[in-house]
Simulated scan of single mutants.
Amino acid sequence: MTEETEFPSVIELNVGGRHFTTSLLTLTKSEGTMLAAMFSGNYDVKKDKNGRYFIDADGDTFAHVLNYLRYGELPPTQQAPSVYRDAVYFGLHGLTEELERYPSMLSKIQRDAYRTQFPGYQKVLVKILDTVTDSNQKIIDTTSDIFIALFAKVKKNKLPNFDKSHVCSYKPKNKENKHADVSLGPWDIPTPEKDVMNCITFDLKERGFVVTHDSLGQCNYMCEKIPGMPGQLLVENCCYSMFKITFHWWKM
């Protein structure tokens, strides 16, 4: 059985290299938090070479966490995202609930919930960035284009020889066929493809990229009826929507 640790009433902390002095009561006043558990006496809290109790976290952010524990003080709006991250990490449910009422945090929570409705959304973002990185290594230009196929629903094909595994494509006038670099769909909610494309563009811009997108219409894959096959339908087209995302490397 581990022997309980006795902490002094005044605690010296080293949080990510920044030093704080606070009371044991302040650190343990919110029950059920990581800090209360660390300084409950049931755990061996590591110390730095000067004897300060070490917490591996961002010191500047922790200053706001500590002020909340001391006074119930909330951080400035611009600090809300980083403080929210640490509030969740330390299990400070009261602080997380307060921060979730900030407009910036509430908007982020709503956006995150919106994205989860589209299976594979985050993987598509990663694939877009991987693709544009590969493109930049091969082509030196002021812009890079990524083609994406979006489909809200899976269409039941009428011709049995329709190739369901085809790669969606778009044929620009007087240019070679452009195949989709990535695809996303289907999803269960009645959200049109253009709204999902707007969401993807927003997320790329939020990461600092200068991007635009264009709707190209339907995929140009066409399946022709096999001669002698019964039925009136002669041609079946793919109904998936094609979009082009353009990265502008010379615009800031």
Score class of each variant (00 low, 15 high):
Gly16Gln: 07
Glu12Gly: 09
Gly16Trp: 10
Leu92Met: 02
Val211Thr: 14
Thr77Gln: 14
Cys199Ile: 08
Ser23Ile: 08
Asn50Gln: 15
Cys223Met: 14
Asp48Ala: 07
Phe7Met: 06
Tyr43Lys: 05
Asn157Pro: 02
Lys175Met: 12
Val83Arg: 03
His179Trp: 08
Ser241Cys: 09
Glu193Asp: 09
Met222Thr: 12
Ser183Arg: 08
Lys158Pro: 00
Asp188Thr: 06
Ser183Pro: 03
Ser107Thr: 15
Ser241Gly: 02
His248Pro: 01
Ile11Ser: 04
Trp250Phe: 12
Gly228Met: 07
Asn220Arg: 10
Asp48Thr: 09
Cys168Thr: 05
Lys225Met: 06
Ser23Arg: 03
Leu24Glu: 08
Pro172Met: 12
Ile226Lys: 14
Thr201Arg: 14
Pro192Arg: 04
Asn67Glu: 07
Met229Phe: 07
His213Gln: 00
Glu206Trp: 01
Trp249Val: 00
His19Leu: 11
Asp48Asn: 14
Ala149Gln: 08
Asp181Met: 02
Pro75Gly: 05
Asp60Cys: 01
Gln232Thr: 10
Lys251Phe: 14
Ser9Gly: 00
Leu233Phe: 05
Thr212Trp: 04
Pro119Thr: 06
Ser30Cys: 14
Asp60Leu: 07
Phe162Ile: 08
Gly16Pro: 06
Ile148Ala: 00
Lys171Gln: 10
Lys46Tyr: 01
His19Asn: 07
His179Thr: 15
Ile109Leu: 15
Lys244Phe: 05
His19Asp: 10
Gln232Arg: 12
Leu106Tyr: 11
Trp250Pro: 00
His166Val: 07
Thr21Ser: 07
Glu31Val: 12
Asn136Ser: 15
Ala113Gly: 04
Lys175Ser: 07
Tyr121Thr: 04
Trp250Gly: 00
Phe243Pro: 02
Leu66Ser: 03
Gln79Ala: 09
Gly228Leu: 02
Phe162Met: 03
Lys155His: 14
Glu4Thr: 10
Gly185Pro: 02
Ala87Val: 00
Trp187Arg: 04
Phe54Tyr: 15
Lys108Gly: 01
Leu35Lys: 01
Leu129Arg: 12
